Computed example of a mutant assay.
Amino acid sequence: MGNDKKSELEQWLEALCSDPFSSILDETVFRVDVFETETEYIVESELINCTKEQIFVTCENDALIIQVHENENINKQRVVHLPFPLLNKNIRAYFTSPILEIHISKEISANHPNRYMITIHEIDL
């Protein structure tokens, strides 16, 4: 295998970016971007006019579910399916208005159930 072969994540990102449905959701619901560092993946969402208390992040198998609640109803939702399971990953979420960042460790680090809520930490600048 040569070094020019794309990783599974690179192939997934390319497909996500070229999917016209993703572009429509970015414009009509809220924008979602995915980044990779040496130690983690970062899913970033732009949540304009939202407070930390309105945002809920849930993990389920290979998906992050980002919801914005208004008046106890789900107002907006994006589901980000990743090319790897989220089970046993250390996942942290940070909100600095209007940006929500969800950091997913590349290493297996915890024993979590298949579905769980992520605590969102607010960062004041």
Rank of each mutant, 00 (worst) to 15 (best):
L82A: 05
F84I: 07
E38G: 01
S18W: 03
E107P: 02
Y41Q: 07
L64T: 11
A110T: 15
E36A: 10
T119D: 10
K6M: 15
S23C: 12
H81Q: 15
R78N: 13
I42E: 04
S22G: 00
P85W: 06
I120V: 14
I91D: 05
P98K: 03
H69A: 03
W12S: 08
A63L: 02
K5L: 12
I24F: 14
I104S: 11
C50W: 00
N71H: 10
T39V: 03
Q77T: 14
D33A: 11
I118Q: 07
Y94R: 07
L86C: 13
I118N: 05
I91R: 01
F30M: 12
D19M: 04
L86M: 12
E60R: 06
H121Y: 07
D62C: 15
N3P: 01
N73S: 14
V57G: 04
H69K: 09
Y41G: 05
N73A: 13
H81V: 09
V34C: 11
I91C: 03
L13Q: 15
I65P: 11
E72L: 06
F84E: 04
K5V: 15
I91A: 05
F21C: 06
E44Y: 00
F84L: 10
L25Y: 13
L87A: 07
H103N: 08
C17A: 13
E10C: 08
P20A: 02
L87Y: 08
K106A: 04
E36S: 10
N111G: 04
E122W: 00
N111E: 06
Y116W: 15
D33S: 14
E122C: 00
H121W: 01
A15G: 03
M1P: 09
A93Y: 06
P83D: 02
E122G: 02
I102S: 14
K5Q: 13
D124M: 02
D124R: 09
N61D: 11
L9Y: 11
N88Q: 11
Q67K: 15
E40V: 00
R31K: 15
V57D: 00
I24A: 14
N49M: 03
L100S: 11
Q11Y: 03
I42P: 10
K106V: 03
F56Q: 13
Q67V: 02
Q77K: 15
T119G: 05
I48C: 02
H81N: 13
H112A: 02
I48N: 09
I65D: 03
L16W: 07
D19V: 05
I55V: 12
L9T: 12
I91H: 00
I102G: 14
K106L: 03
E107L: 14
E44I: 04
F30N: 14
N75S: 14
S109D: 11
S22Q: 11
L125R: 01
I74F: 09
D26L: 03
F84N: 06
I66K: 10
A93D: 06
F30K: 15
I118W: 05
I74W: 08
V34R: 08
D4K: 09
N49T: 02
A63I: 04
D4V: 08
L9K: 08
I65G: 06
